[in-house]
Design a protein around this nucleic acid. Structure first.
Length: 431
DNA sequence: TCTGGGGTCCTAGGACCC
DNA sequence: TCTGGGGTCCTAGGACCC
């Protein structure tokens, strides 16, 4: 109904890397190609990326590793620990290549980007070209959905993924007939932005497909699913409502949180962890040239231990002035920790989150309280050294200097693209 | 024995101001 | 005998995403 007679000048494409982490591993280790391959979360806890062979074996996203040990052995499933420096670097390469097709690129996540495509007579050809272009230069296979709105392109991408043979990995919505056919096929729970809560609500109202969702009254949607739901509905109707967010805006929150391999209760260990998390946050903060006004520290017990009460405590502190000094941030992090720490609780997870972020260059100095100017120089020196010799080489005195807090990463691959010692060596034999 | 981590946005309700 | 109303800002909590 909102479609132009001649198709709109701009179409949105979503480019989504297939099983991204698994594909990164395969790009550097061809022996993994065509074998079932699963990538694990931090601490090798659960499965967070699955090749299509692993999906076919019925291992769900987020599956705890220990529950599938037998199946993994039986089916000879290959597993790898997360190698985020590799994935982050490969992601940057893919995103950079997309800029060759349009100046308007929104990096939506580590493995997905929206691109506003310039007018074309044949978007299927454009899509297949992008797919091939990325694959040739990175070894990463992608799926592409192209449509007049972002929500429709996400849905089209579902189709490209589900029917790779028919679509060749790219599906285009360029007519009202295709839009309606797709929405009638798409179950509500698969709509981008409809979570479990909304799915339940809609199914109670006997709404089961995306098409039925678009037939609801606007005011009902607004009332029950907020302005977000209404925008989504418009987008699915083919009226561009969810805009491309291009500018690389600074993050509005910076977090470092971890689960521990074991639970523990003693104050000294927690202090060390919190200082380490806070230091890492401060580093990320300076990395985007921001300062923070607010710090939050939380502690949690093990939510999977049902015989215990699930303890979740947090403390939010507002700083006297915006800062990005590790020293100040650590000091307040420890203060927050002292407020919530209770002896005798088996803590399993902790984290530090910085919010109230502002641009450091635009800082207003507090009239009475501001930072020791030496901090700025010290931080700059620390960042420079850590940049040169590796993350966390320079630490605060109260951090774990012996590196006893290692994550469990039993199946880690080399950092092929970001460490000199891990660069692949080719042996060329002359015949 | 063993279950991840890092984000975004919206809303309701309270505090406060004029 | 009587006790406004509107606006803004902030925060906690929820929902959702990958």
């Amino acid at each position: 109904m909102y479609f132009y007679t001649k198709f709109p000048l701009n179409m949105y494409a979503i480019i989504d890397c297939n099983s991204f982490y698994a594909s990164c591993e395969r790009a550097f280790d061809p022996s993994l190609i065509d074998k079932p391959l699963a990538i694990l979360s931090n601490n090798d806890g659960c499965v967070i990326s699955r090749s299509k062979e692993v999906k076919a074996l019925g291992i769900p996203m987020g599956a705890p590793l220990f529950k599938y040990k037998t199946l993994i052995a039986e089916k000879n499933i290959q597993i790898r620990s997360s190698n985020y420096s590799l994935y982050g670097d490969m992601s940057e390469r893919v995103m950079k290549l997309l800029e060759d097709f349009s100046p308007e690129v929104e990096v939506y996540s580590i493995d997905e980007a929206f691109v506003k495509l310039p007018y074309s007579e044949n978007y299927q050809v454009v899509g297949l070209h992008i797919k091939q272009y990325i694959y040739q230069r990175t070894g990463i296979p992608v799926s592409i959905g192209i449509a007049p709105t972002k929500a429709l392109s996400k849905a089209a991408n579902n189709i490209a993924k589900k029917f790779p043979e028919q679509t060749q990995g790219c599906h285009v919505i360029d007519s009202e007939e295709k839009r309606i056919k797709m929405l009638k096929w798409l179950p509500v729970k698969a709509i981008w932005g409809i979570g479990v809560g909304n799915t339940k609500r809609l199914e109670n109202k006997n709404v089961h497909t995306a098409y039925e969702f678009t037939q609801l009254a606007d005011d009902w949607v607004k009332r029950n699913m907020s302005i977000i739901g209404l925008r989504l509905k418009k987008d699915l109707e083919g009226k561009p409502t969810i805009q491309l967010e291009e500018s690389v805006v600074h993050k509005k929150a910076i977090a470092t949180t971890r689960s521990f391999e074991f639970t523990f209760s003693d104050r000294e260990n927690l202090k060390e962890r919190i200082v380490t998390f806070a230091s890492r946050c401060a580093e990320k903060l300076r990395g985007q040239n921001s300062s923070c006004n607010v710090i939050m520290v939380f502690l949690r017990s093990d939510r999977n231990k049902h015989n215990n009460v699930y303890v979740r405590s947090k403390r939010v502190l507002t700083l006297p002035y915006a800062t990005n000094s590790t020293l100040i941030i650590n000091q307040y992090a420890l203060k927050a920790l002292a407020d919530i720490y209770k002896p005798g609780i088996a803590y399993k997870r902790a984290g530090v989150i910085l919010t109230g972020l502002v641009d450091t260059n635009a800082l207003q100095l507090d009239l009475f309280q501001n930072e020791n100017p030496k901090h700025k120089k010290l931080m700059a020196a620390m960042d420079a050294l850590n940049g040169k010799y590796g993350v966390q080489k320079i630490k605060m005195g109260n951090q774990d200097l012996q590196r006893t807090w290692k994550m469990r990463q039993a199946y880690l691959s080399p950092e092929y693209t970001t460490k000199f010692k891990d660069i692949i060596v080719l042996n060329c034999a002359t015949i």
